[in-house]
């Protein structure tokens, strides 16, 4: 796993974005960027260079699920690893996200260890 990988953090709460950013830094990932919803995230991603996306589900404007759909249907972004970190814990939603093609799903509140494990797991599968 490349510690230089460019990660986009998408969440409408600035405090949550900051927590994730600091956790990633603890894990050695400092190349992080932020967006506060799907609408501002998509053009950033389309600008290119991103290796990983961590996104919330409930956001004003474009939700995390819609962002995921947009990513998967964009030819340049379709294989981008996406990890969903959200308070939405209903089974149907997890299934829906998986069907759309999410690589990992973390339910809030979460621990630093969970974040680390999920990122590692996603990366292993992506390499394979």
């Amino acid at each position: 796993m490349n510690k230089e990988m460019k990660i986009l953090i998408v969440d409408d709460f600035s405090t949550m974005r900051r927590i994730i950013k600091m956790l990633l830094r603890e894990l050695g990932f400092s190349n992080t960027h932020e967006a506060n919803d799907g609408n501002s995230a998509l053009p950033l991603l389309q600008g290119g260079g991103f290796d990983f996306v961590i996104t919330d589900w409930n956001m004003p404007g474009m939700s995390g699920l819609h962002l995921l759909k947009a990513i998967r249907s964009d030819t340049h972004l379709s294989t981008l690893p996406v990890l969903m970190v959200t308070a939405e814990s209903k089974r149907d939603q997890v299934v829906e996200a998986a069907q759309v093609g999410v690589n990992g799903y973390i339910v809030k509140p979460f621990t630093a260890d969970t974040l680390r494990e999920k990122i590692e797991k996603i990366w292993e599968r992506v390499k394979a």
């Binding site: 969440d11 405090t15 900051r18 927590i19 956790l23 308070a87 809030k108 509140p109």
Partner: peptide, 16 residues
């Protein structure tokens, strides 16, 4: 300190 860091997630959860 890491625990304090994580605990700030209260703001996101209560805010929602």
């Amino acid at each position: 300190l890491s625990d304090v860091l994580m605990a700030q997630d209260f703001q996101d959860l209560t805010g929602q």
